[in-house]
Nucleic acid binder design. Structure first.
Length: 580
RNA sequence: GGACCUGUGGUGCAGCUUGGAGUGCACGCCGGCCUGUCAAGCCGGAGGCCGCGGGUUCAAAUCCCGUCAGGUCCGCCA
């Protein structure tokens, strides 16, 4: 098969000294014109592969960003004019015929990665913003992620199946986008927040190993790592254990990292949810740096100091040895309070005579023995600072964990990739007002085999067969082994207080399906926007989405969302309530 | 729903603390010069609802209140 070349013979960026003398036809945008007078001017022609220099007499009819087709001859640059900073810097195009395919008004900003433009302006003119190298690279990287996923999963026996975008409301979980029905006025579809139930039905349907690069929609507030609509690799497999899921996903991740970063990764390590919380104060720890939270309850609790009268006392050796100023410490204390702690204690480790001591408002409460054992426990040296939070376990760990992240920011780089599986999540996440346990994941998650006996006696102790994949402190995705037996499912519904009638009206079709021979199955889904962002070194998924929304859900380019006229509303059986 | 930061020619900033003429810088744009530049250079020029509304004041880009928009975060995201 020959590659169709269209109006061009070559791409700009692929020409080199091997093409000297070749007659070429190039298409692209005028990046820049350097006019040296009537007899000489240089035109940089740009396409997505790079830039090539055209040498021509002055052309007053050309401007930046005009779209042109250039025919000419590839020639060596004269001695001393080679530009080593660009790939095509050894050659240039001579005797060019320049045909204007399209003129261009002056752009609102230049197509140049070196210049910063406010994001709102970039989004208003996104079609120009994505001409920039960085955006070209990011979106093409993202395409590599998608193809890596397809290659890896198909090699592992998965079949891609598409599921409906118009789905049925399930009044739980994330808020759904509503779609009014024209043929059934007054009734609504929703856009899927995930293909969760559909893929479980595919398992009942015998597909065995399903995957999909699926668009999901959630009508929740937006963040750096969250858009209304996002894309996930969604997969589900039958007759598998958690180990198999790890292998499937591990394979896809390895392929993604290979094609986007050109590095091989080792097997992804695992950590239990409890250890993650206890050591890092968060269920998505950033393991690019260590600095664990250390339990010092035994050391500080016996002192009878009021500030340390709490069930759990956690300490953190500041990840960076720096001299914290009074105002910096105050800011950290305010931050800890804002996060829900009663306070944040700090101890500067100083050399005093021939031994180490603390410099701290609380130092006077610590004799030499506890001081030294604290220093030893943390492995601190002179110049270090130790932070301490005393509170309930959950508060102490999460607050100090957040402080850890903020202090560690300067240590981490986009070049590092620290993956980890988080396993053994609790099945329930606390109790609701009526004392019923709340499902931590979704109510179809299989309890841990060892914990069935506690389902009724001590539900909060029950672990689930669910797991998250974490990369550099971002939750990439999560999954679980599902409940496939109606008796276990009924029991879970009973425990969380969902009546048979409710269950039937919400998920009746799924429960029905499970009556007809459901294989044991489980799956996973991870966010492609997120992994693409991290692989491209971005900390914001909008940088890997062609046309994203702003934080308030607007599209500055199209001005969506917009009002529609009364007739359009009437068509779908809607009238607008008066504005308040 | 809440917290914090931001909004000044087309673009990016400074000016705001301590009110005094739209003052300044860089890029871009327009015109001119220039035969080896490459983010070309030099000379000249145009371009402003200081987000919007209100208040204080003799006087507001600057102080106060409100509002809109952008960002980060909390809540929310089974």
């Amino acid at each position: 098969m020959t590659l169709a070349r269209g109006l061009r013979s070559n791409y700009c960026g692929e020409l080199g000294s091997g093409d000297i003398g070749a007659a070429v036809a190039l298409c692209g945008w005028i990046d820049r014109i350097r006019d040296h007078g009537e007899h000489l001017s240089f035109i940089d022609l740009r396409d997505h592969t790079g830039i090539v220099q055209i040498v021509t007499p002055r052309r007053n009819d050309l401007r930046s960003e005009f779209v042109v087709r250039v025919t000419g001859t590839v020639a060596n640059r004269p001695e001393g004019t080679i530009n080593k900073t660009i790939a095509t810097g050894e050659i240039e195009i001579h005797d060019g015929e320049i045909e204007i395919l399209s003129s261009a008004a002056t752009l609102p900003f230049s197509i140049d990665d070196r210049l910063d433009v406010e994001e709102i302006t970039r989004l208003r003119y996104r079609f120009l913003d994505i001409r920039r190298d960085k955006m070209q690279r990011n979106l093409r990287n993202r395409a590599l992620v998608n193809s890596a996923i397809r290659r890896s999963l198909e090699a592992q026996g998965f079949t891609e199946v598409e599921t409906p975008m118009l789905w049925t409301p399930t009044p739980e979980g994330a808020r759904e986008f509503l779609v009014p029905s024209r043929l059934q006025p007054g009734n609504f579809y929703v856009l899927p927040q995930s293909p969760q139930i559909a893929k479980q039905l595919l398992m009942v349907g015998g597909f065995d190993r399903y995957y999909q690069i699926a668009r999901c929609m959630r009508d929740e507030d937006l963040r750096a790592d969250r858009q209304f609509e996002f894309t996930q690799l969604d997969l589900e497999a039958s007759f598998v254990t958690q180990e198999d899921i790890f292998a499937f996903i591990g394979g896809a991740i390895a392929e993604i990292v290979e094609v986007t970063r050109n590095v091989q990764i080792n097997e992804i390590p695992r950590m239990t949810w409890f250890d993650a919380m206890d050591k890092y104060g968060v269920d998505k720890p950033d393991l690019r740096f260590e600095s664990p939270l250390i339990d010092v309850t035994e050391i500080l609790s016996p002192l009878g100091v009021r500030a340390f009268s709490a069930p759990t006392i956690k300490a953190l050796l500041a990840p960076v040895r720096e001299s914290f100023t009074r105002s910096r410490l105050d800011a950290l204390i305010d931050r800890a309070k804002a996060l829900g702690a009663k306070g944040l204690a700090y101890f500067k480790v100083v050399e005093e005579e021939d031994r180490l001591a603390f410099e701290s408002p609380l130092a006077k409460f610590l004799e030499e023995a506890p001081t030294l054992s604290l220093i030893e426990r943390l492995g601190a040296e002179a110049g270090d600072t130790i932070f301490v939070v005393a509170d309930e376990w959950k508060v102490a760990t999460t607050v100090l964990g957040q402080i850890r992240l903020e202090l560690g920011k300067e240590l981490v780089s986009h070049d590092q990739l620290a993956f980890t599986w988080i396993v053994d999540f609790p099945l329930f996440d606390g109790l609701d007002e009526s004392g019923k346990p709340i499902s931590a994941h979704h109510p179809f998650t299989m309890p841990h085999a060892d914990d069935f006996e506690f389902l009724e006696s001590d539900p909060l102790r029950v672990r689930s067969q669910s797991y998250d994949l974490v990369l550099n402190g971002w939750e990439l995705g999560s999954g679980s082994i599902r409940i496939h037996r109606p008796d276990i499912q009924s029991k879970i519904f009973q425990i969380i207080g969902v009546t048979d009638e409710e269950a039937q009206s919400r998920f009746g079709f799924l429960l029905d399906a499970f009556k007809f021979g459901a294989p044991p199955h489980g799956g996973f889904a991870f966010g492609i926007d997120r992994i693409a962002a991290i692989m491209s070194g971005e900390d914001n998924i909008r940088e890997v989405i062609a046309f994203p929304k702003t934080q308030s859900g607007l599209d500055p380019m199209t001005d969506a969302p917009k009002p529609v006229d009364a007739a359009t509303l009437k068509n779908v059986g809607l009238t607008l309530a008066p504005k308040k």
